[in-house]
């Protein structure tokens, strides 16, 4: 069992947990992920490591409650434990001094982007970060991202905070104004955002690295469920990635593959909501000292 030592509610649907996993912390690097399982009946969920603390032996995970497992994870409290945490998995980000780099993060993608931006800046890069979310409520870690960026642009889709724009708008402006200075771009966020970031940067010929989040079971190369089509053939996100050249990815195929279990995911959510609502009612009944 891996104990949760801290929890923060970053928004209604975005949670941060700090988990004891010293075996992962030892060799964890920016860009890598872990597979977590809530309980014995749970599924294996890949989550990128947002931060780790060598001395405390803990990792920080941030997730959005989009399915049954992340909803269950979101209900867990400090002191409770996860059934399984395996890692660190995948290749770390290739941190070098490239010159000027842009880090584009959308929504919950801000979490995995933070250690990458931090390490890129520490390696001597001039880091320009663009972070965005649907609205102000879903935005987090602006202060942290500011601390590791030389410039920070904040936007929301609905204009409730920062600039009212999709992240691709300021990105395109940057490329038009000083594209020749920009050596490399990282993008992490929803698949559709990473697709549009890659399409935005392609005409400028700036290498663009995306961190893909696909369907995955074991996370160690065994199942191949995570395979993604690149221009020159299929790759496994878990062991060949998770970072890839965004200009080589077959985005239509990826967008279709991540929908494969949609029906089952909806069924699991519906059942989970019914179960947890049921538990709530039972607790109330017990609370009034009666019972049915």
């Amino acid at each position: 069992m891996y104990r949760i030592v801290e929890k923060q509610v970053l928004s209604d649907v975005t949670k941060l947990i700090v988990v004891e996993a010293p075996h992962v912390t030892r060799r964890a690097k920016a860009g890598q992920f872990v597979i977590v399982i809530c309980d014995e009946q749970g599924e294996r969920v890949p989550l990128t490591i947002a931060d780790h603390d060598q001395a405390a032996g803990t990792i920080t995970l941030i997730f959005q409650e989009v399915g049954k497992s992340t909803m269950q994870l979101g209900m867990m409290e400090p002191g409770e434990g996860l059934f399984s945490v395996a890692g660190p998995l995948g290749h770390p980000t290739e941190i070098e001094n490239y010159g000027t780099v842009v880090c584009v993060a959308g929504g919950v993608g801000i979490a995995p982007m933070y250690p990458i931006a931090r390490d890129l800046q520490a390696a001597g890069n001039r880091v320009i970060s663009i972070i965005g979310a649907r609205n102000k409520e879903l935005l987090f870690w602006e202060d942290r991202m500011r601390a590791v960026s030389d410039e920070l642009i904040v936007c929301t889709d609905d204009g409730s905070y920062g600039r009212k724009a999709l992240v691709t708008v300021p990105l395109k402006e940057l490329l038009e104004a000083r594209g020749h200075d920009i050596a490399r771009i990282w993008a992490i966020g929803p698949t559709i955002m990473m697709k549009f970031v890659s399409q935005t940067t392609q005409p400028f010929g700036v290498p663009t690295i995306v961190s893909l989040n696909t369907i995955m079971v074991d996370g160690t190369g065994m199942c191949g469920g995570c395979r993604v089509l690149m221009n020159d053939g299929a790759r496994f996100v878990c062991v060949d990635g998770p970072e890839f050249d965004g200009h080589q990815v077959d985005w239509a195929n990826l967008l279709s593959r991540i929908q494969f279990y949609r029906e089952e995911e909806q069924l699991a959510v519906a059942q989970w909501q019914q179960e947890t609502a049921g538990q709530g009612r039972q607790a109330e009944t017990a609370g009034v000292g009666g019972g049915v």
Binding site: Q41, E43, K68, V217, M222, E265
Partner: peptide
């Protein structure tokens, strides 16, 4: 792959979804 299919069925007990979470 048969590996993915069998891992979902055997290790993750997918045949008992949604009692077990892996479809």
């Amino acid at each position: 792959s048969a590996n993915e299919f069998l891992t979902r069925v055997n290790l993750m007990k997918g045949y008992r979804f949604p009692e077990y979470d892996t479809p």
